[in-house]
């Protein structure tokens, strides 16, 4: 005998989000390989740039103070890219049809992935900071500067994760999502993340100075180590807000357009 249960009130928006965030965090924790990579990659990059490239780029041993913001953005980009794979995985699985036919705001399933990605990347960021301090990073920031720097980093992770979520929604499969996402990972190399842009050829410098990563890097670096920020802070927040808004709209549009098509 299958007992009957009374039709319940629909779940509130808050409860729906909480359930999907919990689900995505469980997914993250249980995907052991991806979790190990997300923690190992920042450690390896930090050591690589400090001990292998650092000596050549700045024989004074000060390179670690220059490179920390770059490594954080590089890792955040890498860590967020798994959101594209997670979202594409959900969209190609039957479970999305179940969510869509329930009286809930089914787009929350994407929000769940975004928040879980944010949490994962903030942990990875903390690992980078911890290791950086161990290998000689000496920030000059006070409490307010730290708070602002973490704020900018959080905004960046949020923006790029929504961008990856949108990529995951339009990609036909998880492996395609992974492929498209890969291209974005090169952006930090073409910025002031690892070397000052004035050391680049003029044509490349034009690209590097005007792409979103450079002002974000300069802002974080300025907040942490006291280098001049100028108007980078406005550009950084503006770029992040633009990417965030654009990606969110792109993601919502794709989510609703894809209804019932697999």
């Amino acid at each position: 005998m299958i007992a009957q249960i009374k039709p319940a009130q629909s779940a509130s928006v808050g409860a729906t989000h909480a359930v999907f965030i919990q689900r995505s965090i469980l997914h993250s924790v249980r995907n052991t390989e991806a979790l190990i990579m997300a923690i190992m990659l920042p450690i390896m990059l930090m050591l690589l740039f400090t001990y292998v490239f650092g000596g050549a780029l700045d024989p004074g041993g000060n390179y670690v103070n220059y490179v920390v913001p770059g490594i954080i953005l590089l890792c955040a980009g890498f860590g967020s890219s798994s959101a594209a794979v997670d979202v594409a995985g959900d969209m190609t699985n039957g479970i999305i049809d179940r969510f869509r036919t329930m009286p809930i705001r089914s787009m929350s399933v994407i929000v769940g992935h975004v928040i879980a990605s944010l949490a994962r990347n903030l942990v990875a960021t903390a690992v980078v900071f911890g290791l950086a301090l161990l290998v000689g990073f000496r920030p000059s920031a006070g409490f307010v500067e730290w708070l602002a720097a973490v704020g900018v980093i959080t905004l960046f992770i949020l923006a790029i994760t929504w961008l990856y979520a949108a990529i995951g929604l339009v990609a036909g499969s998880p492996s395609a999502a992974s492929g498209y996402g890969f291209a974005l990972l090169f952006l930090p190399y073409l910025s002031s993340a690892f070397v000052p842009t004035h050391t680049m050829p003029a044509w490349l410098r034009g690209v590097a100075d005007n792409q979103p990563i450079t002002p974000i890097i300069e802002t974080i670096r300025g907040l942490l180590t006291g280098s001049p920020i100028h108007d980078s802070a406005y550009w950084a927040v503006g770029w992040c807000a633009l990417i965030l808004a654009g990606s969110y709209l792109w993601a919502s549009w794709s989510f609703h357009r894809k209804a019932g098509r697999r």
Partner: peptide
Amino acid sequence: ISLTGQFAAVDEVLTAEENLRMIGRLSGL
């Protein structure tokens, strides 16, 4: 309505119990 689609609409990463509790919560329980 409720739908059981052609491709098993279950979350493979979660356990059976977690799947049921998730759908319960989403249904307003």
